[in-house]
Write a protein that binds this DNA or RNA. Structure first.
Lengths: 210, 210
DNA sequence: CAACGCAGACTTGCATACAAGTGTTCTACT
DNA sequence: AGTAGAACACTTGTATGCAAGTCTGCGTTG
């Protein structure tokens, strides 16, 4: 139920500013307000939803400052995990390669949902290879601030092609044990969102605030 | 209310394994179960509490694997923030120095609570100087996995003295703009918990699991 | 015609009652 | 005496009813 709402917000099916009526939504989902409120409370701590007492509940706008902070966390954890994965001697990158293939397939079929899922798993796999999958999972609430932007950039096929190219370079450098070259790609990869955010804001200023 | 419980768990006033009765606790706090459950739900997502339906709610044990993952996050974010703070040209470290003085004062008065608070603020201030206080705040839920260990090490005066010495070295290197030397101290500082965890486990095996 | 005021419908926050399930303890029977 | 079974007490999960407050829209009045 929480996941349901997170996906809806991440995919912008619930746009920033959209009102969420507890009573109405509880009827739609066929549950009572009590369990629904727990899910909403979690969304509030994630910063994806703002609730003003006695007024209403709304999907939180995208705040560039939050994006900046989340990007900082993501970039440095990803760099650290990647560096560690490069040091591991007995790497098994078959799953990483499989996820890359899945991305290519999804791209060919214009299946953005499948691509996004494979993209996520790809990065998680790097953390797993480093022995820090737990760090990836712990990072999720923070990363949500980035995911609305990342997800909304996927309808552009050229962007997806670039993402795949970068993923490929990352996997290749990892297989080669070339931590230096790979890290540069990982860094640039993680910083894409910083370049994309202003573009997105120019196109849809109503989704942003501050 | 959530903060109340977090502090109680962090300070081990609520030890791992201790049962938390929703009804009983709601009476003690003078509120209903409904708002209390929201706080507990948040503790569950933080991994500080485990709840088995129709059985009971307990304070989660300390799991070394979670400690390892949290330490990874903490170390690399702290290193990144410190490196950035060193690059900033117009550093104002007066607050950092004030927090160091407060730590010395608290140590002299054997006020562990005050020391812990000043310790926390010290590290937060480094993130603030780097312009990433938001990253520090976002890290808090993860860092909770470390705080029970960190807090329990403070009753040892020798440990506190070492912490102050390391903090001083960190502040000195920052003032000198010596990112290289400071980073080494920050790394060692962040890794203390990894050395302390086995010691703590040997002394109080009942607080741990796995 | 404009502006002020009041009423009503809506929101979330909280307390309470009920439902479902588990663990334990006591009793009865072998 | 030991074991099996049933009942009871206690747990969390959910639904519902009430309380408090805010915003909107209509009516009235200056």
């Amino acid at each position: 139920m929480y996941d349901e709402l997170v996906h809806a917000i991440r995919d912008l099916r619930l746009s920033p500013g959209a009102t969420i009526s507890e009573t109405e939504l509880s009827i739609q989902l066929g549950v009572s307000r009590t369990p629904l409120r727990e899910a909403i409370a979690r969304l509030v701590t994630d910063g994806l939803v703002t609730v003003v007492p006695q007024v209403g509940t709304r999907v939180a706008p995208i705040r560039l400052e939050d994006v900046r902070q989340a990007q900082f966390v993501r970039e440095h954890l990803e760099l650290a995990a990647y560096a560690l994965a490069c040091k591991v001697t007995d790497r098994d990158t078959t799953r990483l390669r499989a996820l890359l293939a899945e991305q290519v397939r999804a791209h060919a079929h214009h299946d953005t949902d499948a691509f996004f899922a494979a993209d996520e798993s790809f990065h998680e796999q790097i953390f797993d290879l480093a022995g820090h999958g737990g760090a990836w999972r712990a990072m999720q609430p923070v990363k949500l601030q980035l995911d609305r932007l990342r997800r909304s950039s996927l309808p552009n096929p050229a962007t997806v092609a670039e993402l795949i190219a970068e993923h490929t370079a990352i996997a290749d450098a990892l297989d080669a044990g070339d931590s230096r070259r790979g890290s540069a790609v990982v860094r640039a990869h993680a910083r894409r969102v910083l370049k994309y955010a202003p573009v997105m804001r120019a196109a849809h200023p109503d989704l942003f605030e501050d």
